[in-house]
Amino acid sequence: MSTPANAAVRKNKRSFPEWLRSRDGQKVLVMMAFLIIPMVLLMVFTYIPFAEMVRYSFYNMKYVGARKFVGMKNYIKVFSRKDCFGALKLSLYYMGGSVVQLSLALYLATILSFKVKGGSLFKGFMFFPFLINGIAIGFIFKFFYTRGFVFDTVLQWCGFSLDNLPYWLKDRSINNISLVGTSVWRYFGQNMVLFIGAIMSVDNELYEAAMLDGANRFQQFKYIILPSIKTIFVLNVILSISGSLSAFEPPYVITDGANGTGTYFVIMHQIAHTQQKVGLASAMAVVLLLIIFTVTILQKLFFKYVFKDSVE
């Protein structure tokens, strides 16, 4: 065995091909070979576009043709045009929806994590909507909400009269709620599965001990289940806020943003790909990204602070 000093001297004396054949050389070689493709993909399809997007936001441009530097004009437009920034108001509906969705998921996960007859069947039924492709969902709900079709029929079974029912996708007082409903429908099962996973990761002995100590169901929920899913619950709350701000799919596939259902991203999509105002759309994207980052950081700090408090 050589001393470290000796090794260092030897290392310096090695020729390049020798170094390549050594362990260190092999290591670097493998790292390069394994990292180069994912890093190139990450650069070409995420970081370069990201930088480009920030640059575009200062230009008046289309995908092809001349571009003109306009400074902050696009950003001023984002805030002054009625259809741009105002569309963010719609995300309140989606936030409301995610509150419903998360509580529903938590409730059902609690039920399903105890012994239930046919539990995996129920779980499968409620989870399956998550696996349906977006376009199919669009058609399914256009059909579902059509006047006199599925939803109206079921409500009529429950005693409602068709004359009192609104047009679910046209009526401006209700159509955003109808769309949010589709999003809850699609994702509550997935949230539920995540929560069940977290609850199941708790050692079973804990429940048995709690039972022996005479804890009732509610106490079990509060002291065992809730702490066990804290991390994933907080994560989902954070995701749901940024998800609501960037809500896109339900209006895009079902109403195409008609009748006041165009969320911020649907408007941005139209401005970018239909009207080809790439600069303005980029500015919209940058503004929303800044908002999302701010909100995410604030939330993280908030939860850190709150939970630290509760531990002490």
Binding site: T46, Y47, M268
Partner: peptide, 21 residues
Amino acid sequence: NMFLFASMLPGVAMQIPVFEI
């Protein structure tokens, strides 16, 4: 962290510049 950050960027917004590329 670079991969984590990338996952936070909403796809719909990113497709504006990606389309050009």
